[in-house]
Design a protein around this nucleic acid. Sequence first.
DNA 1: TGAAGACTGGCAATCGGTTGCGCCAGTTGC
DNA 2: GCAACTGGCGCAACCGATTGCCAGTCTTCA
Lengths: 337, 337
Amino acid sequence: MANTPASPKPQPTNGQRPTIYAIAELTGFNPSTVSRALHKPGRINEQTARVIHEAAASLGYRVNPLARALPTGRSGMLGLVVSDITNPVFFALIRGAEQAAATSNRMLVLAESQLSAELELERVERMQPAVDGFVLVASRLTDEQIADLAGFKPLVSANRLIPGLPSVLPQGDEGIDGAISHLATLGHRSVAFLSGPQGSWVSAVRWEQLLMTTEAHGMTAVEINCGTEITDDTVRRIVASGVTAVHTYNDLMAFALLRACAERGIAVPKQLSIIGHDDSYGSALSTPGMSTIHTPMLEIGRDSVTQLVALLDGVDLPEPAPYTTTFIPRGTTGPTP
Amino acid sequence: MANTPASPKPQPTNGQRPTIYAIAELTGFNPSTVSRALHKPGRINEQTARVIHEAAASLGYRVNPLARALPTGRSGMLGLVVSDITNPVFFALIRGAEQAAATSNRMLVLAESQLSAELELERVERMQPAVDGFVLVASRLTDEQIADLAGFKPLVSANRLIPGLPSVLPQGDEGIDGAISHLATLGHRSVAFLSGPQGSWVSAVRWEQLLMTTEAHGMTAVEINCGTEITDDTVRRIVASGVTAVHTYNDLMAFALLRACAERGIAVPKQLSIIGHDDSYGSALSTPGMSTIHTPMLEIGRDSVTQLVALLDGVDLPEPAPYTTTFIPRGTTGPTP
DNA sequence: TGAAGACTGGCAATCGGTTGCGCCAGTTGC
DNA sequence: GCAACTGGCGCAACCGATTGCCAGTCTTCA
């Protein structure tokens, strides 16, 4: 695009949005009447309301959510705090959340905690007075910290179970079950779990599930903690463990492992089978395609916000369908060597 | 995760954040003094300020951005409107924008226009009173509509050039130049351009660049308009055109084309070379790896917000380094049949 | 005919900060 | 010893909407 560069001109911030006072002046009614005509259907005489609506339209009036927020305590904004925007897992979640927010006519405020509990708390506290409630995705905070926060504003936890708080997360072990059965069928007897970041609740849960499932299948399982980085040492430990299959905390790590194997001449799936987690964007595109456990992130994002809105509106929501995970076999799993 | 389901409890919305009035009462100073002590360094006696700061800390005070926004007209929120959150191109951009927003201590309000100009206008107008300014990414609106919007609040356009407005977008044709040179070296003499959505500014620019570059290389070029969908008809038209290489509007379409070719037994790159655009997330993962033109989306997202903030703060920013695109050869380009 | 309601619409307080202006005390200058 | 100045802080208006309360008018029903 061979075009002119960015041009930071002084820019005209002149135009001012009209207020209800402008409409009041124009129509001769009191601002309170204008407010009611615009937002309390039936409260004001039909004809008066029409006049006011027309004036509002002609002036291009938009209600100022900030001004409204002061007396009502409702800003119409919802906070969404994710730990890491880079991670493609969250793309679907964010999209679902945005959809639900738009549906309920609210705005979505996005914040990233960059995988740090401290930063997460800071970001949440900062946005707290501005939003009506929020969704914490895979929070790094302690249960107590979260409970404290929930005392101020409604809060929904996505992808993590917080006792006593609405939590939207995958249930059941269909996914891991499918994965392990699949491995068993292919002759595997031993699996390693590459665990995720230190202190990750989800990682702990996934390891626990893997442990239980492998036990049920009479397979052995080891946890290898590499803190999301795939280093020489990680590969060495995998090889040393003698496992024939690796299940990773998420797809990102599975991709990294796939690459590391390619670099070191380890054939996948001939010599080692790899199973990722989440079926996040791109997992069908790799070579070979990533066998992974699908997690319905879009639905989780959508329903987290829907739950939050229901909470705010005092509406009772039907119990949402459980979010089941499913194993999706692709190219990174094969028979044992 | 075999755990208890979501539990929509009545949730305690009791706790209230303290206000400057609480601090005023606690310390015996006037609220105005508290306000100044907290936000006008030097304006208040040092010792008084310390007392107030301590009281604020002990009470867990957080300034309410909404209340502050009313008299000052500054909410500390920045709007980001993208056309399609699904599109991986924007992942990097959103991330960059969030980073820059966090750096300048502001919050990011995210909205999706779902590829509709009408919806885009609606979303922008709704969020306008709440934000200090915004970034429109690859806007579908007309130049006039955008100019109108810019009259109310500062606005930065990302990935689209709007005359008279700060626009952050890739410049130069290094990318397309590299791609065409690459094709020429491989013996290609004809290229098709699979154009993007109707009315897309970016698509038009990319086609124009392709045209100019192929002319310079003495190659032929045709535009095939398929409206982002790759159908039987699309493939038929590509084959009928007799081209040996296809450049697509973006990577998403390139992936779709790759898949369509695989389904129809067209070998890539043996029979047809494909070049995507943007080097968006996942383009290195496909089979074969996608040859594409890298666009520095993270930097564009980051700098769009930085520009906006500079505009708001009245700061003069040094001209940012141009955002050059680069051709990245991977597996989907090869010698002519 | 009169009283009790329904309808309408205005008044004014309120939300939580910000800020122009002015007062008071203490300091400085001559 | 008095005027001028300055630093520190309080007073009160203001941002734009919402809403409880009240008053006036019109219905309705006994």
